[in-house]
Design a protein around this nucleic acid. Sequence first.
DNA 1: CGTATTATTGACTCCATTCAAAGATAGTGG
DNA 2: CCACTATCTTTGAATGGAGTCAATAATACG
Lengths: 236, 236
Amino acid sequence: MSTEISHVSCNNCSLDKICFPRGLSQDEINHISQIIKPKKTLQKGDYIFRENGEFKGVLAIRSGSSKVVTNDHHGNEHILNVLLPGELLGFDGLSDGKYHRSAIALETLSFCELPAQNMNDLFKNVPALTKELFRHSSEKMNLDKDFIILSKRPAEEKLAFFLISLSDRLKKRGFSASEFTLSLTRQEIGNHLGLALETVSRLFNRFQKDDLITVNSKQIKIKDISKLRAVFTFSE
Amino acid sequence: MSTEISHVSCNNCSLDKICFPRGLSQDEINHISQIIKPKKTLQKGDYIFRENGEFKGVLAIRSGSSKVVTNDHHGNEHILNVLLPGELLGFDGLSDGKYHRSAIALETLSFCELPAQNMNDLFKNVPALTKELFRHSSEKMNLDKDFIILSKRPAEEKLAFFLISLSDRLKKRGFSASEFTLSLTRQEIGNHLGLALETVSRLFNRFQKDDLITVNSKQIKIKDISKLRAVFTFSE
DNA sequence: CGTATTATTGACTCCATTCAAAGATAGTGG
DNA sequence: CCACTATCTTTGAATGGAGTCAATAATACG
């Protein structure tokens, strides 16, 4: 009893349908709950893990959000992803025992850890988890695929996609789909999408004029989500 | 004895260091050799699998090369990848039981298959394979990462990277690193890199004038690989 | 051998970047 | 709590890299 309290229990976590426990039986959830490390809390700007740092395990955001970044050989930072509660990160470390990206808290953040040293045991004893981890990993590849396609599209589609993606994912987590606060600067959004920060600013303006959204610095309100969605769905 | 002959044996396959058997013990290789399906041979243009088609398993190119493509919602084809012998494909199907890309032979091609229906058994009985599959999967993510970074770089870097990547991978497989035949048209190279076919043509020309390569239609000869590598390594 | 596909080359256009300067916001210390 | 400073955002003007259009040339294919 008392030992259980010191652990995060996936059982009473609201993210159980999307996070580690997804697709597992009750027994299996109990099993991994014993292994998943208690959440840690970080402040804005803190690193969850660092590129080239030792692979400690696969992680899950519990609250807050994170940016996943990498440095190219010119020293430029590239924001590869923004992660919301329930989303997993660190799969890239399974290749050779070190992380290939850094993950940085965008605001106060807590997370859970499936430690690397228990991984082999879990593969053996919780086969459903293996399957689910492959599923998560495969889903990530499919998101990257969409992002690669997006990289060839014009600026307005990139930004529309970014907003819609955030909206959809926030909704799935019980947040408002139409009103949210960006935790990235224009600079960071531009970096992520392969745009200049000025282009991001101009597009926010245009979207606002076209009555798609309302922008108040980092506060975004989506006024017409189907029209916004149409920006990247129906443009030539 | 006679049953073994009908199987592909990974034991006498020259790709054993990079393909499915990588990182496995002799026993484990024998085990998976019994399960991996005999290679099939396809002709140029044939599909290895189709987007949205049922996930049959993870595959490995045995000989020849393949392009991996996907269609966006405008019906445009995007070439995501070119695969060489020993490279695995189909991981994207682990997410929900169907492939999310198509794979098409670029010339006469043969391949091996790790069937989906044996996957769960293998996860249980050949734990090292699970680990290796995660490793492959993670490596693919890291390649996608590089490609996403590349997508923000200028045209000359994209093309230089494409040639260097091919050269490196061909070398690893025992082919010439400096002379090879492109199995893609200018159109297809452009599609893959997010460039117009005319841009690809012009750049081949420029690289040739700069004495980096020699181009004869699809025949490429790299004259100065370090200078070519410098195009994407040292450009601002 | 003739036809279709693929590649080259030039001229023009345009989307997004860069440069620049001013304005807004947030964070910090007195 | 306000002043000061750093960071972030907006907006305009000019530039440029790569795309599009178009016409010709080369190659592959039936």
